[in-house]
């Protein structure tokens, strides 16, 4: 698990597996490059819209100006948008006849190579020794969520989530007496707004929230991150949650925290909420905060590893 070969030998690994992993390997690297250096258009649209709401010559407008300049520059230079290239979170659906182990190993080796190429920072540290082996490959990194499906193509999505925003995520167990939140939708709303207040500018706002109501502590957080795979401009199919999402975003933007916590109108660009069943004894609200540098990409990929189309 700890040792990563310097030279990827994916073809040898793939020889008996039925995965054309050399092509897939290149595709993984391209997905990583694009994710690290370009924001998806739906996010850019929200940032542009937020920028317009900030008053001219204000600190909020100044921050949003630097943010949009940075987005353009990173794309042109094909360099990481933010130097914290984050937790590497893959969400992979693959044709069920293929070998999951080969796909995982191909992803890990692509991560090591993308790090060498500078698309990812050497960003993964052994929690006991503090050592950084410089490859981004080790226990828990990259994080690979693999699911087989009956379709004949891959759906590979990647999220790079930096430490600043990950650190301001929060999990509430209701009832919560500190904020007076009970076990109902009003209580959930209070949790969400309190999390934004606690985060202030520390999560590199304007941010986006992924929220899961219910589940256990682990599935709640997991699912809250999956909410961040949704497009900014989608509508929650559940009308009650759709209403909650809008109300939370609107109320958060009244707090006046603004871009980077400098003060201003754009504190939150969106809220995405889902619900999982829970135990009668538990009522968790799990909140993942995503910074403005909302790096997510994905592609539909044919079984031979060729990118068919980008998903965002």
């Amino acid at each position: 698990m700890n040792s990563t070969p310097d030279v990827p030998d994916v073809q040898a690994v793939a020889a008996s597996s039925g995965v054309s992993s050399s092509k897939l390997y290149e595709t993984f690297i391209e997905v990583i490059r694009k994710t690290s250096t370009e924001l998806p258009q739906d996010v850019i649209d929200c940032i542009e819209a937020g920028k317009k709401t900030e008053e001219k010559d204000s600190r909020g407008a100044y921050a949003m100006g630097i943010i949009t300049q940075n987005i353009g520059l990173a794309k042109v230079k094909s360099q990481p948008l933010c130097q914290d290239t984050g937790s590497i979170l893959f969400y992979i659906h693959y044709p069920s006849h293929l070998d999951a182990e080969v796909i995982s190993e191909t992803a890990r080796q692509a991560v090591a190579e993308a790090t060498k190429k500078g698309y990812l920072r050497q960003n993964s540290v052994d929690s006991l020794t503090g050592k950084n082996n410089g490859t981004n490959v080790g226990p828990g990194s990259p994080t690979l969520h693999l699911e087989p499906w009956k379709k004949s193509h891959f759906d590979i999505r990647l999220m790079l989530k930096g430490g600043g925003c990950e650190n301001v995520g929060a999990q509430y167990s209701l009832p919560d007496t500190r904020i007076g939140a009970g076990r109902d939708i009003s209580g959930v709303k209070k949790c969400i707004l309190d999390a934004v207040q606690q985060a202030q500018g520390k999560g590199c706002g304007p941010g986006v929230l992924g929220v899961t109501i219910g589940g256990d502590r682990a599935t709640g957080y997991l699912s809250s991150k999956e909410q961040l795979l949704r497009k900014m401009n989608d509508t929650n199919p559940n009308p009650e949650l759709a209403k909650l999402e809008k109300e939370c975003t609107d109320a958060a933007n009244e707090l006046g925290i603004g871009p980077m916590g400098f003060g201003g109108k754009t504190t939150l660009m969106g809220t995405k909420v889902n619900a999982l069943n829970r135990l009668p004894a538990s009522f968790f609200v799990s909140i993942s905060y995503m910074c403005w540098a909302y790096r997510r990409q994905g592609a539909e990929i044919s079984a031979d590893g060729t990118i068919q189309k980008w998903l965002y």
């Binding site: 948008l81 600043g164 500018g201």
Partner: peptide, 13 residues
């Protein structure tokens, strides 16, 4: 002095 978080490229320039 607060720099804009995430603006790695503008600041590198």
């Amino acid at each position: 002095l607060h720099a804009v978080g995430g603006a790695a490229q503008v600041l590198a320039e």
